[in-house]
Amino acid sequence: MLKIGLIGLGPIGSLHIDNLTSGAVKDAELSCVCDMRKVDNPKIADIPFYSDIDQMIKEGGADAIVIATPSFTHFELAKKCLLAGKNVLVEKPISLCTADAKKLEALAKDCGKICAVMLNQRTTPIYKRIKEMVSSGEIGKVNRVSWNMTNWFRPQIYFDMSAWRGLWKGEAGGVLINQAIHNIDAFAWIFGLPQSLRAWCKFGKYHNIEVEDEVTCYMEYPENMTATFITSSGEHPGSNRFEISGDKAYVVSEDGKLKIHKFVGGSLREFTLDTKYAFGTPETVETVEEFEGKGGQHAEVMNNFVSACLGKSKCDYDASQGVLSLTLANAMLLSSFKNSEIPVPFDDELYAKILAEKQASSELRKEVRKDFILDFKKSFR
């Protein structure tokens, strides 16, 4: 049985409490919790509560720590826990910049511990299916990818209710690092990293915030594959349309459905080069696959983490995986800062320096809105 300590009892922390106390996570128990304020939650009434992180790490008896605190705290807390000999599961993003993420990856190896990241969107059935189709070659050579992910709408009060949201000092980014990081992770998980990209970020276009709330990015991959990724937290109702153009099939993911157009002849390229018909098009067979539910999400990731900590399986969500999405998010911001195309991987230290300069001139909110209403059905996607 793995004893887990939880740092951060906000909305995400509450979700972890539910999973750990309901039996959704096997071979684990919640042994201690930590937050700056006492939280009235009957599910943790009999669980030791700490307001001091160092004290919890020392006295709480936890084998592993789950970090569910604001983004700007992730790196230092994960580092502290690893150095204390604890396995760690960090909420997304693993850190604010790739330089720090790679430090955590190296530190975990040096300490002989696991540092995992909550990449829960990888458990979504439709993304799993797309990953399978690309990896198996069912789609054939991928020529072009387009993901329009603009249904991450957030009103102004979402930012104003927290001291850290929407600020360089608090989040070190906006829609890329907070909301769409899930989609960016799925993108990198399925296709890997591009060799270069050019991004255009709009900062505070829809909200009174410092960071980006609209992004358009163009990417180039090896073997002439190209991709675009568009996201926004200021559009409504927005859309979530994911298109993949392959040599054997054309695939569209939208509204929980996967439309697959397979080329009867097998290869679009062969038809393109061989047909004698000036306006000819290849014959296709369309199938539609429908997906219900969101998969295992947070509980599935935590079950894998627990199993890995107990030596029963490999960790599928370790720090190296967390670096992927952060690389894309940081690269898009760096491209926009420099107003130019940049190679991937890019200069980690240059990005860290630019980010530090922005954070130096940024301050957390001294006053936050107290009149907000939380609708948890809309909080997690």
Rank of each mutant, 00 (worst) to 15 (best):
Y317Q: 04
H16I: 05
G140I: 03
M1Q: 04
M302H: 13
D371N: 09
C34N: 11
I12P: 00
E91D: 15
N120L: 07
G293K: 08
I230N: 15
D46W: 01
T226H: 10
A319F: 09
K366I: 02
V306E: 01
E367H: 09
N120H: 11
F153P: 13
S14G: 10
N41P: 04
H236L: 06
I7C: 11
I17C: 08
Y158R: 10
N178C: 09
K80P: 04
M225Q: 13
G296V: 07
R241T: 12
L82T: 05
I342H: 05
N339S: 00
Q121W: 10
G173I: 10
A188S: 14
K103S: 04
P125L: 03
G61E: 08
T98R: 15
A199M: 02
Q55K: 10
E59H: 09
R122S: 05
D46P: 00
T284Y: 03
E212W: 04
G173F: 05
G173Q: 07
S196K: 15
I130K: 06
E289G: 13
N208Y: 05
V368M: 06
L82D: 09
P155V: 05
S335A: 11
P194C: 15
Y317H: 07
D110C: 06
F337N: 04
H16M: 01
K366H: 10
V252G: 02
K128G: 15
F191P: 05
A68I: 00
R381G: 02
Y218K: 09
D35G: 11
A356Q: 12
K262P: 01
F279K: 04
E357F: 03
I7N: 07
F263A: 01
A352H: 11
A188G: 07
E76Y: 07
H298K: 07
A278E: 04
L83G: 01
L83F: 03
T287G: 07
Y277D: 06
N208M: 11
Y317V: 06
S361A: 08
L176N: 09
G5N: 09
K353V: 06
R37V: 10
C217W: 00
S136M: 13
K141N: 12
G61C: 03
D185I: 12
S95D: 03
I130M: 15
C201G: 03
S379Q: 11
T272Q: 13
I126N: 12
I181T: 05
S14M: 11
R144T: 06
A116H: 11
D348N: 11
G23I: 02
N330I: 01
D274T: 14
S336Y: 00
C309A: 14
G266S: 12
T327P: 10
S335D: 06
V306W: 08
H261R: 15
R129H: 14
E367L: 08
N339P: 00
P194L: 12
V344S: 12
